[in-house]
Design a protein around this nucleic acid. Sequence first.
DNA 1: CGCGAGTGGATGACGTGTCAACAATGCTTG
DNA 2: CAAGCATTGTTGACACGTCATCCACTCGCG
Lengths: 155, 155
Amino acid sequence: MNATPRWLDPEQKVAWDHFIRMQEKLVGRLSRRVQSDSGLSAADYVVLAALTESEGGRVRFLDLTKRVEWEKSRMSHQVGRMAKRGLVAREECPEDGRGAFVVATPEGYRAIEEAAPLHVEHVRRLFIDALTPEELDTLGRLSARVLAHMEQQPD
Amino acid sequence: MNATPRWLDPEQKVAWDHFIRMQEKLVGRLSRRVQSDSGLSAADYVVLAALTESEGGRVRFLDLTKRVEWEKSRMSHQVGRMAKRGLVAREECPEDGRGAFVVATPEGYRAIEEAAPLHVEHVRRLFIDALTPEELDTLGRLSARVLAHMEQQPD
DNA sequence: CGCGAGTGGATGACGTGTCAACAATGCTTG
DNA sequence: CAAGCATTGTTGACACGTCATCCACTCGCG
């Protein structure tokens, strides 16, 4: 169909494998942890964190999706489920008839205030503590580089 | 409930944020890409890759789960879905009445042989090309370090 | 031999993510 | 003011992952 593919050379493949496996295991463990510690899913945690970091725990729906870089449909489903459990509520927006606010309820605040310290502990234990401060800094900087690269790449 | 939490200091938080956002965006883009390029999900891809790298495209079920580090239930569901689409087949195991083999069908081979070069291209384009070879090597090495650290950590 | 423990794997329920389509409102222009 | 077009958000269908549970089979031991 097209030119012969350029496979990764061995060093590249090793680096890619390590990165992918690390990332998967880390994220997997963290989300199972936050779930069993607090009953919040990783998604719940992200949404509540974004809400409670904002004035009044109240954010316009689309702003929320941008803040966490989610698609609106994903957010809509998530907010729906969280509303059903009483963690957040939807409110109408006076100045735009289509619009909506999402608000963290007292339940929501309670839940994330309980979950956050545990979450930080696990991040520390599984990730931060694995590296020296310089290594951590390096990893952060390389991540930022990849991020920037992706942003100016189609797709 | 317990001692005051030790939050991440600013450098740590920045590094963590960059890493998490990068990883999420990268994995998200890659899996949407492989999906739209080839009709295979990321999960399909992983399973087919593991199968077709093995003698005869045939692997014992539990071996397969170990090779890709998945839980058996996840694999069972995945194999079920893939079997329904004709990408793999289940075969009984003569020497263990409980056992099962998973086999890549010709369809399965066709699918991954079509998908693989495109997948590699995207990995290259989004990730490898963002870094110099030394940086890539560093990132790989740091990932391996975190991985090793997690493995000797509870949970 | 028979019985209980462990192993290999499947299943159902449920929360999650994506895609495509839709509804409702706002905006802009003739 | 009316006709479109863009924006804001929801919905339904479906694939995916996890947890708990279950079943069939094997193996070891009395």
